[in-house]
Design a binder for these strands. Structure first.
Lengths: 213, 213
DNA sequence: TAGATTGTTAATCGATTAACAATC
DNA sequence: TAGATTGTTAATCGATTAACAATC
């Protein structure tokens, strides 16, 4: 049977399922139906079943799914139970927050070190993570076999940093810069962009309150 | 002719076009072809033309589009040229960053005030923005006719804050909490969620490096 | 058994891409 | 004119949803 990759949409819903399942009352039922999950999360029930089918052993008619199994299946599929080391480049506003953010560990990600070109912050520490000069990136990432890189530099520098990461062996890149990165096909990029989000929200207000529809 | 809403996908690409057009050499050609934009941005050329058709007057065969017009059309469509006032609720890690972020102004958004329940920060100021108790949210938002709210509170508090925003007249909500918010149909919610992004990246690494495919 | 629930197959829907005629 | 480029119509693709048989 051919390997079927999990779609981005399905993956993005997984943390929602995980949250929901973990928030279920501790002494409650051992099983849960996709129908009930869908109702509570305001999703389509077939969609929930298809999503769950991607990660688990399936449920039983009339009974539903075993909550505990579902939780561990989802965590396994998302890699939330084994830690990936990551590096972050660009300790500006956003970079600093990500370094200070405590929620990554339970998502299986550990930012082990950060890089910046700004001499005045190089050598300092944020939340226990050292900030090193970008010139050290290659040697550190290749030696530590870092697989994940988080880009929080400005638009202009993003592609250069990306190239450096790729050369250093990084294969998964989380890009917060507002540019489309050019990478070889064996490197995965996920873009997260505040401006895109604002575009959607702001356009909604423009359309809603404009007089010349 | 019926009004045709712009798809989320198209809207999310708009800032990319805008960046690209603004970065074009100042003394350069007055026109640009969708073909060239698509090549440079690594997009499909028909897609670029369809996107641009949603906002502008169209281009001319052989000539292309007028750069200057395109820029102003996109800015207008995104509402980047008229300022919307917004409020932010939850001055934790992420909330603080958003308050300090200087990039919103050029996207037509101005966070005018923030709210938090934490007495030790209420009354202080971040980047010129006052932090007020949540108990003041209703009176301030309704009096100032605030239309946009940014939710950066924890998972548990998000729905309550959302309800309060809706009651106060806010119609566009940018939600960073990892829950699906329940809102009336005349309120627009855009979700931005770090955990979803990490799910996608982390699953890529799991699949790529797992032995038992 | 009856009915709730699963999982599969088919239909729908929307976005992207391909083909091509119109135009400067 | 010839050819680059636009814009439209049709085809493709993937995700969501509906219908329904299987099962406990």
């Amino acid at each position: 049977m051919a390997f079927k990759p999990i779609s981005t949409q399905t993956l993005q819903r997984m943390p929602m399922y995980l949250n929901y399942l973990k928030d279920l009352p501790v002494g409650g039922a051992a099983n849960i139906s996709a129908t009930m999950m869908a109702d509570d999360l305001r999703l389509n029930d077939v969609q929930v079943r298809k999503d769950l089918a991607m990660v688990g052993q399936g449920g039983r008619p009339k009974i539903g799914y075993v909550v505990k199994d579902l939780i561990s299946d989802i965590e396994h599929c998302l890699g939330f139970n084994n830690i990936d080391s990551a590096v972050l480049i660009g300790v500006g506003n956003l970079g600093r927050t990500l370094l200070e953010y405590e929620g990554f560990s339970e998502c299986g990600v550990d930012i082990v070190v950060a890089f910046d070109v700004n001499q005045s912050i190089v050598g300092t520490t944020i939340n226990g993570k050292r900030i090193l000069p970008v010139s050290k990136l290659y040697s550190i990432c290749s030696r530590m076999k870092i697989k994940m890189g988080i880009i929080t530099v400005g638009t202009g520098e993003a592609q250069g940093i990306c190239d450096l990461l790729v050369k250093s062996g990084v294969v998964a890149i989380w890009n917060f810069a507002s540019v489309r990165l050019n990478v070889p096909s064996n490197v995965f990029v996920h873009n997260d962009n505040m401006t895109s989000s604002l575009a959607v929200l702001s356009n909604y207000l423009v359309e809603r309150f404009s007089t010349n529809k």
